[in-house]
């Protein structure tokens, strides 16, 4: 298969970028999107050109490292998959494919298609953890959790933190990501000690880092590789509302 690629090239954060045209020739239909870029890069390296920088790690859809906005959609066309799980057979031979980095003020471009998503780490540091007892693990059945709760928490825990939600959101809102984290930890007994402060602190961190405000478009849900449901945003709104009331009536939220 042959493709015309329009790829965003940007030397570093400080320098302005622009689209460059590349030709991807003789690409096997079973190649993944990242493998297609590898093939293009091999050609660039042979011609002593700077290869296109892009993020990837596990290449099996679970690590959340690969990114890219392909023809206007984070992780490209199709539901519930990351860019590494997108195969070239999904495209037509001769297609023009636009490849851009995730765009959001809190995700600055490092180089070409690589963006710095450490803002997510700052959000996690502010509340995305539990106080765990060190030492041997407790007996599994000593902490009973109802099946529906366990399932719901597991559904939220499926978030791989790739940032596609922020990339897809016209406002660069991180509500789906934060909603997933607050829900997955807040639903389980292990997450109760910090539950009161978690939503409060993570929302404040998200706002401080310059993520935008959710306007309920649900573009995030549509592109999420883990299919995180929009109702986790509703749950986050609820948790934050309770935390804010608690703070206003002078009950410390850090208890």
């Amino acid at each position: 298969m042959n493709f015309k690629l329009k790829i965003w090239r940007q030397p570093n954060q400080k320098t302005a970028g622009e689209f460059h045209d590349y030709a991807a020739s003789n690409i096997p239909a079973e190649a993944s999107f990242l493998e297609m870029l590898d093939i293009v890069n091999e050609g660039l390296a042979e011609g002593n050109e700077d290869p296109i920088a892009f993020d990837s790690d596990c290449r099996e859809g679970i690590c959340g490292m690969c990114s890219l906005v392909i023809n206007g959609i984070p992780h490209g066309p199709g539901k519930a998959k990351t860019t590494c799980q997108l195969y070239m057979r999904r495209f037509q031979d001769g297609d023009t494919i636009w490849i851009e980095p995730f765009r959001a003020a809190p995700f600055p471009v490092v180089k070409d298609l690589v963006v710095d998503r450490s803002a997510f780490d700052r959000i996690i540091e502010s509340g995305g953890y539990i106080t765990a007892r060190t030492g041997s693990a407790p007996e599994a059945n000593s902490v009973p959790i109802g099946k529906p709760i366990a399932d719901l928490a597991m559904e939220a825990a499926a978030c791989i933190g790739c940032g596609a939600c922020v990339a897809a959101c016209p406002n660069s809102s991180a509500m789906l990501f934060v909603g997933a984290k607050v829900s997955h930890l807040g639903l389980l007994p292990q997450g109760q000690p910090e539950r009161k402060s978690r939503a409060h602190n993570m929302v404040r961190a998200m706002d401080e880092l310059g993520f935008g405000n959710c306007t309920n478009h649900y573009e995030c849900e549509a592109v999420c590789p883990a299919e995180i449901n929009r109702t986790f945003i509703s749950r986050l709104n609820r948790e934050y509302r309770k935390a804010a009331v608690r703070e206003a009536v002078a009950v410390t939220v850090d208890e």
Binding site: G72, E100, S172, G212
Partner: peptide, 17 residues
């Protein structure tokens, strides 16, 4: 919201909005 998205995509394809 506009400050949070300083650079818009060259190709935009709304999925659910």
């Amino acid at each position: 919201n506009q400050a949070a998205k300083p650079k818009k995509y060259a190709v935009s394809k709304p999925q659910s909005s």
